[in-house]
Simulated assay, not measured.
Amino acid sequence: MGTVSAQGLRKSFGDVQALNDVTLEVPDGSFFVVLGPSGAGKTTTLRALAGLERLDAGTVHLDGRDATHDPPAARDLAMVFQSYALYPRQTAFENIASPLRARKAPADEIRAAVAQVAELLHIERLLDRRPAQMSGGEMQRVALARALVRRPRAFLMDEPLTNLDLKLRVEMRTELTRIHRSLGGTFVYVTNDQVEALSMADHLAVLRDGTVQQVGTPTEVYERPANKWVAGFVGSPRISLLACHAEGDQLIGAEGWKLPRPQWATAEDGRPLLLGLRAEDLSVERRSDVALDGELYGLEPLGDRTLVDVKIGDAMVKVKARPTVTGTRGERMSVVVDLDRAHLFDADTGLALAGTGR
């Protein structure tokens, strides 16, 4: 078993409310990612689960048992830190073996366990090296091995890939998901990188200012964001938001544009709205009655595609287009909209409208 439950977590540091009624349910065997910008409360949440932060309010349950007041050692959770936290004078073998030695495990059991986890992480050749003799990626693997060798109730990972270069981060994302599948354990993983979150998680919680904004699968969070903030934070490039209102069978923009009102749009006439359009749901390569007229502002060639910035009045819309798209700044351009994949948010509350989504 490896279920982790947090109910109503609250934590303040002076006048700063780090956690504000945070509630999470981490299923056994899941890869649960906590995503948010810097200062969202992600690390504080993880430290609260580990017992490293004294809570102002709330409870933590592990496998259904109240562990709120248990010390860290009694919770049987392994934590992987962003800084690796390896013992500099010990070899990789000694670093990995340290949790088992602390438990006074027999020497032959330690050797077998270290060999097994080293094989899993492909670091057999590093076992005699000290941290100063390793690259950042190698040190991260050793830090992971030290956590994995214990076979704890759950693994807590605090932005473990942040210090790696892009190529290594991509490789380690693949490795971590492979390891998770191999072990079948429960992972709680903190990151501010939405690519990591969307590619690795099977469950995802989005935090902002110490408050949970949405919990769901990566697909649910991306395709059915709960509010405009989640829609803007999750997805690259950022979703385009255009002010408008509904009137009869049309959406009428603040810039004067008009689009057919989607059948799923439930807003009453005149209500201030925001139309959310993701770059991949737009096109500039064909004509249509369902289009926004604007002018080309800029092109950003990215090899496999070109990001096109189109200015519509004072608003800017980003389009993911084919790499062959070209143009001159200022020329007229129509942006074709897939309304079945559009989003609508209440302009006052920021909440997604009922009926928005797939």
Results as ranks from 00 to 15, higher is better:
Gly2Gln: 03
Thr3Phe: 00
Val4Ser: 06
Ala6Arg: 02
Gly8Gln: 14
Leu9Phe: 10
Arg10Lys: 14
Lys11Ala: 12
Phe13His: 12
Asp15Ala: 15
Gln17Met: 07
Ala18Trp: 06
Val22Asp: 07
Pro27Gln: 06
Gly29Lys: 02
Ser30Met: 04
Val34Gly: 03
Gly36Met: 05
Lys42Gly: 05
Thr44Trp: 03
Leu49Gln: 12
Glu53Ala: 04
Gly58Cys: 05
Gly58Gln: 09
Thr59Ala: 11
Asp63Ala: 01
Arg65Gln: 15
Arg65Val: 15
Asp66Tyr: 08
Ala67Tyr: 04
Ala67Pro: 07
Thr68Tyr: 02
His69Leu: 15
Pro72Cys: 13
Arg75Tyr: 09
Arg75Leu: 12
Leu77Asp: 14
Ala78Ile: 01
Phe81Val: 13
Gln82Val: 11
Ser83Ala: 10
Ala85Ile: 09
Ala85Glu: 08
Thr91Ser: 15
Ser98Arg: 04
Pro99Gln: 04
Ala105Ser: 12
Ala107Arg: 15
Ala107Thr: 11
Ala112Gly: 03
Ala112Trp: 00
Val114Ala: 00
Glu124Ala: 15
Glu124Ile: 01
Leu126Cys: 12
Asp128Trp: 00
Pro131Ser: 02
Pro131Thr: 03
Gln140Gly: 01
Leu144Thr: 10
Arg146Thr: 10
Arg150Tyr: 03
Phe155Leu: 15
Met157Pro: 11
Asp158Ile: 12
Leu161Asp: 08
Thr162Gln: 13
Glu171Trp: 02
Leu176Trp: 02
Leu176Ala: 02
His180Ala: 03
His180Thr: 00
Ser182Tyr: 02
Leu183Ile: 11
Phe187Ser: 06
Thr191Pro: 13
Asp193Pro: 13
Asp193Ile: 03
Leu198Arg: 08
Met200Phe: 02
Pro218Trp: 03
Glu220Ile: 01
Tyr222Met: 14
Val230His: 04
Ala231Asp: 11
Gly235Trp: 05
Pro237Ser: 12
Gly256Met: 04
Lys258Val: 15
Arg261Val: 06
Gln263Lys: 06
Glu268Lys: 09
Pro272Thr: 09
Pro272Cys: 06
Leu275Cys: 07
Leu277Val: 07
Leu277Tyr: 09
Leu277Ser: 11
Asp281Val: 05
Leu282Thr: 07
Arg286Gly: 03
Val290Ser: 04
Val290Leu: 02
Gly294Arg: 10
Leu299Phe: 10
Asp304Met: 10
Thr306Ser: 13
Leu307Tyr: 15
Val308Pro: 13
Ile312His: 09
Gly313Phe: 10
Gly313Glu: 13
Met316His: 06
Val317Tyr: 07
Lys318Trp: 01
Lys318Pro: 01
Val319Gln: 12
Arg322Asn: 12
Thr324Glu: 15
Val325Leu: 09
Gly330Lys: 10
Arg332Pro: 03
Ser334Asp: 05
Arg341Leu: 08
Leu344Arg: 08
Gly355Leu: 05
